[in-house]
Design a protein around this nucleic acid. Structure first.
Lengths: 334, 334
DNA sequence: GTGAAAGCGCTAACAA
DNA sequence: TTGTTAGCGCTTTCAC
């Protein structure tokens, strides 16, 4: 990489002259400016980012910590973050906590050494079950702002972007009930994380309000989803509705129904949290609760960048943005 | 963030003493060392990464450019890269080219300013169709090594990690033929990228060798996969096998078969490039061609880090590693 | 209009 | 054993 020094030497001027010329300073003469710029262009000069970061005490880099990159929703949020960050001249350093508290702590620690200006993260499962939040508070007190999305810790003071999980399943369940479904099962493989719990509660409330009994099928890591759904159908012949808290179980619920001569949606309606690209995996296509993942990511990035630009201005004035889900009807519901 | 300067001041010693003490230099007295370390620990001192990078002229950061984060395979490779990089003390800056040549160029340009020590990337679709490779060559000539994976440019001299795409579909097709399948269709939504073409050729060769006619269903962006598969089944009643170049069409091929009273795998066998977690989306589960994505990512990271450590040593001595696929049988094939 | 010098935080060669 | 100094690449104040 060419440096200012080298350009200065070749031109027989001082380093500061070159720097100013490149930054269009009025101090420098028209002619000199032109000469400098030409040479710089010919060498494809680009100011060294590291030096700039050191000088300006900010990196224009955001640390993103996500629990699981193979989760379609989280990947999509990451996409949204990346795009929005780029628009504002920021890069993102990605860490995958893999649902582990330790890895989450490590990542936070490791990047809190000047590598990034702030964080965007969704909390690891283990962190939520152990209810640990000190590492977040510490990071914030070190002057590094955090924006949490989806799985958030309400006891940490920071900006947040969340989904209306409770209402989403509440409404989805109600819509099934409105179509005369009576025996609706809730299927979830995320019952131990915050959003999973909220979704279950939304379902429960809707069912109880209508005087209907609730039934929950919990799928654990390592379980065979197809087997569990199969057994469910075998045991309870009168199931006529499924609300799924994750994308996999909704798809499986539809495809497996046919093994039991249940027509979808005539005999059984299925709706689940998912995205368009996954909904085509079932025949008929799954009616989904869309979370607008990209928008969530973009919003999180906006909040962080705003805070970074404001300096300490908006201290103690934190936003919680709720991005509403949308029920997108396909052929798996009436 | 605490700096050496502040620690030095508080201890009444010089900056270099503090630096040496923290780096366990033998030069510094036992006692001083202890005092320094204690104070540093109490302040949770961490050396400023940016200053270190500037000083040592390397960032311990890898730029990763992937075409599509929502592609399960690519996301999994990213996971592998991240983990391996972390093991070696590297962070990753992720850019998503979104299959765009321009964004790919921009990312390369933008990070080639000292932000990263090298790149790991898979080539964007547009870049492949336009067959552009100059931006890669330029980056390399600037002293930033590149490792390409999956979709690679053979004309660029750099390390590569690829899949045995041709053999994978060749073998998969052969295995269907061995079970007396005669009318096997190849379905692909990636026929315009390098790996897609190779996969199609593997299928073609296997079919032609056996004197069987070939048939390819191409699915374009924006097409309704379910509709296209449906029409295919409607028109050609005797289809008894499907080889899919991507994960979606394989899953759809299975789930849709039932609409035509075709039993899987009795009447029709389906095999496709995919991963375990997606294969459960079909009933019965899809027999998959596993690509070992995490391993690919890890290998790519290893190659890059090796090269970074070797300096210019292994110049002009580039590796192409082939990570063999594995055919994992499920219930969608005999 | 141009240049010298300080300083961001750190390491390391050299001096004391 | 400890301190001084230079320098990584850059911006910016201040002097000329």
């Amino acid at each position: 990489m060419v440096t200012l020094k080298q350009l200065a030497k070749e031109l027989g001027v001082s380093i500061s002259t070159v720097s100013k010329a490149l930054n269009n300073s009025e101090e420098i003469g028209e002619e000199t400016r032109k000469k400098v710029k030409e040479l710089a262009a010919s060498y494809n000069y680009k100011p060294n980012k590291v030096a700039l970061s050191l000088k300006q005490n900010r990196t224009k880099t955001i640390g993103v910590i996500i629990p699981d990159i193979l989760n379609h929703f989280l990947a999509k949020v990451l996409f949204g973050i990346e795009r929005e960050a780029n628009l504002h001249g920021y890069n993102i350093i990605t860490c995958i906590s893999n649902e582990s508290l330790q890895k989450e702590k490590d990542s936070l620690q490791l990047l809190a050494n000047g590598s990034v200006d702030g964080f965007i993260l969704s909390i690891a499962e283990e962190t939520q079950t152990k209810n640990e939040i000190n590492h977040f508070k510490e990071t914030i007190s070190q002057g590094l702002p955090i924006v949490m999305f989806d799985r958030v810790a309400h006891d940490v003071k920071c900006d947040k972007v969340i989904v209306d999980d409770f209402e989403a399943t509440y409404n989805a369940t109600k819509s099934l009930i409105a179509k005369k479904r009576k025996h609706i099962v809730f299927i979830s493989n995320i019952d131990n994380i915050s959003v999973g719990k909220l979704r279950e509660r939304g379902y429960n409330k809707a069912m109880l309000e209508e005087g209907l009994g609730t039934q929950v099928l919990r799928i654990k890591k390592g379980d065979d989803t197809q087997q569990k759904v199969k057994r469910l159908y075998k045991k309870y012949k009168d199931i006529d509705g499924v609300v799924s808290a994750d994308s996999t179980s909704g798809v499986v619920a539809i495809n497996m129904a046919r093994d039991f001569k249940k027509k979808v949606p005539k005999d059984i309606s299925v709706v689940g949290f998912s995205s368009k690209s996954v909904s085509v995996h079932s025949v008929p296509k799954l009616t989904i609760i869309r979370q607008h993942a990209k928008k969530i990511g973009a919003k999180a990035a906006q909040l962080l960048i705003e805070r970074l630009n404001n300096g300490a201005a908006s201290k103690d004035d934190y936003t919680t943005k709720i991005v509403k889900t949308t029920l997108v009807k396909s052929k798996s519901t009436l």
